[in-house]
Design a protein around this nucleic acid. Structure first.
Length: 412
DNA sequence: TGTCCACTGGAACGTACGGCTT
DNA sequence: AAGCCGTACGTTCCAGTGGACA
């Protein structure tokens, strides 16, 4: 009789184990970014406000432009998508043509890209570079007018676009209705930055913020409700310890009431539970998930950094560690730059100027790895005080994955 | 109260490159 | 192929600045 051949594919074990392990998730998708829930707890006021503003579409009129303000994870994007989804259905019922475009200005951050992206929504092909911006704008206008529609453009993280490329795009968009003959455009701007209006050109400001809706951060109790809702849909009954949701809510409330982070944490805790072959999510899994998320973000950000930024981060790390030993806090731009030059010397690389390094420090700050605060030390001048916002151990680990940098990390 | 440090950060400009139009 | 145009990444120049200190 033929002997049963044992496969030496290591994945067999993984798959068998996975299939045999207890199932915690009923529907994992409800804990991802893509999911738009049917109800948004504690956001009724904002939903109604946005609904009222955009409702004129139901009479075929162009609604006012709206601005949604609030910190990350306060439900701005979810509310906007929720309202537009419902509105589109209602408009169709009333026989009006309405379309929406969603643009995230985090990636679409130049005038050219915004119009190119809008063209894509209308199925107009444009190259990602090469054309004059005016030409792309004209193609967009022509295509839009042909559609004879009410076009709502949601611009998420709009502050990033303005900070990088100025108010020009928004100016053109707010004026576009004077160019169009048949179609009409409304803009829903979403910003994390409450001070964003200060950067805005006054001409744009007046027409763009015809209406404003503010989103305050969720409290621990509100996060608790949101998580309960989602957990109910996502997990099988009895798979979640009673202490888990209050714990996640408390962690997220401490970290600025960010619901997205809270939901992420819940999802990862579930994944870890399944992977461990456990059947109930406990606070232990939550803490493991918290650790894993931080580790992942740091390592992802650090490994994808360009070489100069990595070198700079190494320099900051070395200086920071040195200062820590002497019970001093904070590295200044000057310290970091000196150390950076030294590292460039070892690597036989041409160093960047201090001006450029100052900019790269700001970028690292934006990425959430470090915090760079401008301080004045009186007669010792003005500088940035740099500290790490994530654990230095994680930064060390992420940097050591680069062979070229590893040897510097144990330098003193 | 004025000085002065160690920068910051805006502005203008240069270079390399991809890709379009003519 | 030449002439544009946009993007990315960088440099140079320099006015401006908060606050400790003489």
């Amino acid at each position: 009789m033929a002997e049963v051949q044992k496969s030496d594919n290591p994945l067999d074990d993984v798959f068998t184990e996975f299939l045999q392990s207890p199932r915690v998730f009923k529907n994992r998708d409800v804990l991802t970014d893509r999911y738009i829930p049917d109800k948004l707890p504690h956001r009724t006021t904002q939903i109604k406000a946005l609904g009222y503003t955009l409702a004129s579409i139901l009479r075929g009129a162009r609604p006012s432009n709206v601005f949604l303000y609030g910190k990350t994870g306060t439900g701005k994007t979810a509310v906007a998508k929720f309202v537009l989804k419902n509105l589109a259905a209602k408009a169709k019922e009333q026989g009006y043509d309405m379309s929406t475009a969603y643009i995230n200005c985090h990636t679409v951050d130049t005038n050219y890209r915004v119009f190119a992206e809008l063209c894509h929504f209308l199925d107009v092909k444009v190259p990602f570079t090469g054309l004059p911006t005016d030409e792309v704008f004209n193609r967009f206008c022509t295509a839009l007018d042909e559609k004879n529609t009410l076009f709502v453009i949601v611009m998420d993280e709009i502050d990033l676009l303005v900070k990088k490329s100025g108010s020009e795009t928004l100016y053109q968009l707010t004026r576009i209705n004077t160019v169009l003959e048949k179609s009409r455009v409304s803009i829903v701007g979403i910003s994390n930055d409450l001070k964003f209006k200060e950067y805005l050109d006054p001409r744009v400001l007046s027409s763009l913020s015809e209406e404003e809706i503010v989103f305050r951060p969720y409290t621990a109790q509100e996060l608790n409700d949101i998580l309960n809702d989602r957990a109910h849909m996502a997990f099988n009954d009895g798979c979640i310890d009673d202490a888990v949701i209050p714990l996640i809510a408390a962690i997220a409330a401490r970290e600025h009431g960010d619901a997205r982070r809270a939901i992420d944490l819940l999802r990862v805790a579930g994944e870890i539970t399944e992977r461990n072959g456990d059947s109930i999510i406990t606070p232990k899994h939550v803490r493991m998930a918290h650790d894993a998320i931080e580790r992942n973000t740091v390592s992802e950000v650090v490994t994808t950094l360009p070489i100069q930024s990595k070198l700079l981060l190494t320099a900051i790390y070395l200086q920071y560690r040195e200062r820590e030993k002497n019970d001093e806090t904070g590295v200044t731009t000057g310290d970091a730059y000196q150390q950076y030059i030294e590292l460039c010397d070892y690597m036989r690389m041409e160093p960047l100027t201090q001006r450029r390094i100052s900019e790269l420090i700001n970028e690292l700050d934006l990425l959430g790895i470090i915090s760079a605060r401008v301080v004045s030390r009186g007669r010792y001048g003005r500088t940035k005080q740099i500290t790490f916002t994530v654990s230095t151990r994680l930064v060390h680990d992420a940097l050591s994955s680069d062979i070229g940098l590893k040897k510097f990390l144990n330098f003193s």
